[in-house]
Write a protein that binds this DNA or RNA. Structure first.
Lengths: 410, 410
DNA sequence: CGGATTAAATATAGAGTCTTAATATAAGCA
DNA sequence: TGCTTATATTAAGACTCTATATTTAATCCG
């Protein structure tokens, strides 16, 4: 009997190390360089511990020592502190907005800053051709990704995570309902498998959900707020954030707005863009010789852009249409905010910039249906970028959450 | 230089101990007695650790050693294992359903089993008197609690937590909106302060939310499911569970159904009980000499119970009313399930037992508005007990979550 | 230019936790 | 009584964090 002292990991002692490392990394994620003293205040840990953790994180590639030790520091006396900086280029992510008509891919660093972006058409607007078959759509997406990578000057090996947004419901494992709706299958032809080809972590999600994540990113700090983001182009879709986290369950059908068929004054889940065009067409048919700016277009060629532009110029017909859009929006907001007691509702998507007034008017109209003085209704500042930015945000979050096990090397 | 070795807690090492103790306790909460070996498998910890933790928990009063060491164990050879049992009587909780017309209080042990229950009238039904003022309502509630305690043979000191359910929205700190709606203020006259009088932990929440918690309790195991519970007596209210956790945000207005005013075929947030009475009254006025069982009541005295009973006996008018209720319910379900992609919707409250058929018929009618074959619509088996059971569940959960710091001694 | 001052980094000891392995204990069984 | 079996107890090892003392790297000032 004697010395088999025994090796082996001493159990869950390391767990606490992992947790603290993650805590330190999260404190520094995307922020300015920090000194140990700052991190001590932020985490409550001791200097010795902090410095050990920072050394480890530096070895793993998450941090680097930053040289400007004294400049940024407030003090001028004493030994200058080491400053560790978050390495925003430790690895990169790709966010893709795979819309119906076009695909946009962006390469971003861990701060979420885009350093490469590319767009490719897909099912060109106005064309009557059948939708792109699955293999072609997959190829379009991969091409767009490669173009974005090329612009960023990076290779496949530099990427750690890929997130793709599609206009379809997506379940928690990245698939869309099969056999039910051909459109959904063609929008999301098993895109979840695209990541595996290069060994990337990969996620697919609904476009409205990701737009909501993008807004959450902007509102950082207000972890308590609850809001919905409405994507409002051709078809309506919504993403819902409650208490600072995105609602999502296994089937992924949250925010599908088919039930609006039953709401008075809405009666369909067509988007505000669709309604603008539709109402303009009807109005022009009824008043063929309309003299305002909107009259420049024929009923057949008129688009939502025409309506918004004409309304800017004070066209009476266009303003009437805007008012109807506001009423529709108000009713939609009543349903969402009434049921879920939201703090705000954001209208997003490509046409959002044109809807600032509509949102304000909807807020006004809403008071006749619902008492909710705290509710804000606004057009998103992100507009057409929202979905892509949300995809990037999710990708960065995934890296952040899985961070520790082994460093950023994919 | 020398021996000032230093005392002081060695920082966050104890944290891991806390976490493990909590883990072990949660493994045993409400379950059959366990041996160390079983807990080792459940938690992944070592025998030595488990036994230390169990000894500590026993000292604190959460566990006790159970004597039947060998009986329950599958094995017959070897040294018999120690068996530790969860002490369901370590402390007790009180759940109160403070409804409009009556107040029910129940005393329960940590397993949630009721060992005392009492009911008192409050704002008696049918009376035209103004609502009870705040002090009187508070006294009624305290009286009911004392009666329940007396029945259980316990004193104030045996209680650790009090949860009160009220028919009003309740924010995260237990208050209801002030000045907005006199009814809400009278239903929840700062009831959150009632706990402080005896030093109990205390929470107040909306009745529909708590009914949802009660259903969640029944469905234990299915942590993935999402559902809504609709309380459907006089006024509608809903509690929503997503992915196994109750939705709740700071203002507490989730599940308020005022927005149903805008839904076609619903047009109000009156409950199914209200509608049954209202439709019966109208029908009897239109057909004064109605020969079926429903005709036994005059239009003035008819109640929803009359309608349900008459429908049981095949009364034609009553059946038509039931069909209209089903249509209403179907439309409500479309809105809730369509927006939130729920797995099931439960109709609860005192009249739930009479609504089994209505729920089934609503499920059938719903298919014309919404594709959701996975959706179940059912009448809750808990009926009038749902709210009170949810209050108990929340109280037990609060104890469970705050458990460790110092033992069950309040 | 060298010492005083200052604030941070490093080194060392201490306390706490878990695991591992060895040892002791309490039964049944032959 | 002794063997087998399964558990409880104990002691040693590894790892973590904290707390204190010591060293280091700068500035300031005479």
């Amino acid at each position: 009997m004697s010395q088999t002292p025994s090796p082996g990991p001493a159990g869950s002692s390391q767990l606490i190390r992992q947790l603290n490392a993650q805590r330190v990394l999260h404190c520094m994620w995307g922020r300015e360089p920090s000194t140990a003293t700052e991190l001590m205040h932020a985490t409550g840990l001791t200097r010795a511990t902090i410095l050990t953790l920072c050394r480890d994180l530096t070895e793993q590639g998450w941090l680097q020592v930053s040289e400007n030790s004294r400049q940024a520091g407030q003090y001028t006396k004493g030994r200058p502190a080491l400053r560790y900086a978050f390495r925003e280029d430790a690895c990169h992510v790709i966010g893709v907005d795979a819309g119906l008509h076009q695909v946009t891919a962006a390469v971003a660093n861990l701060r979420g800053v885009e350093i490469g972006c590319a767009t490719r058409p897909s099912n060109p607007q106005g064309s009557d051709a059948p939708l792109q078959p699955a293999p072609e759509r997959r190829r379009t997406i991969l091409d767009t990704i490669d173009a974005a990578l090329a612009q960023a000057g990076l290779t496949h090996a530099d990427v750690a995570c890929l997130v793709i947004a599609v206009p379809a419901p997506v379940d928690c494992s990245g698939h869309s309902p099969k056999g039910l709706n051909e459109f959904w299958s063609l929008m999301n032809p098993e895109l979840i498998t695209l990541g595996a080809e290069h060994g990337w972590d990969c996620a697919v999600d609904n476009d409205a959900n990701l737009a909501a994540l993008a807004e959450l990113d902007l509102a950082s700090g207000a972890a308590e707020d609850s809001f919905a983001v409405i994507l409002s182009g051709e078809r309506l879709g919504a993403g819902i954030v409650m208490d600072g986290s995105l609602l999502h369950q296994s089937r992924g059908g949250i925010g599908e707005l088919g039930m609006l068929d039953l709401v008075q004054g809405v009666e369909s889940s067509n988007g505000l863009g669709w309604w603008a065009r539709h109402l303009a067409r009807e109005a022009l048919k009824q008043a063929p010789g309309h003299s305002g700016p909107l009259g420049a277009a024929t009923p057949e060629e008129v688009t939502s852009e025409h309506v918004f532009a004409a309304a800017e110029q004070g066209d009476r017909l266009a303003l009437e249409i805007m008012d109807q859009l506001a009423d529709r929006l108000a009713r939609i907001c009543v349903v969402l905010a009434g049921l879920l007691d939201l703090d705000r509702i954001l209208v997003s998507g490509a046409i959002a910039p044109a809807l600032t007034d509509v949102a304000a008017r909807a807020k006004h109209k809403l008071t006749q249906y619902l008492y909710a003085p705290w509710l804000r209704i606004e057009a998103s500042a992100l507009g057409a970028d929202a979905v892509r930015r949300g995809a990037i945000r999710l990708a960065v979050d995934r890296i952040k959450d899985q961070a520790l096990p082994g460093g950023p090397a994919a």
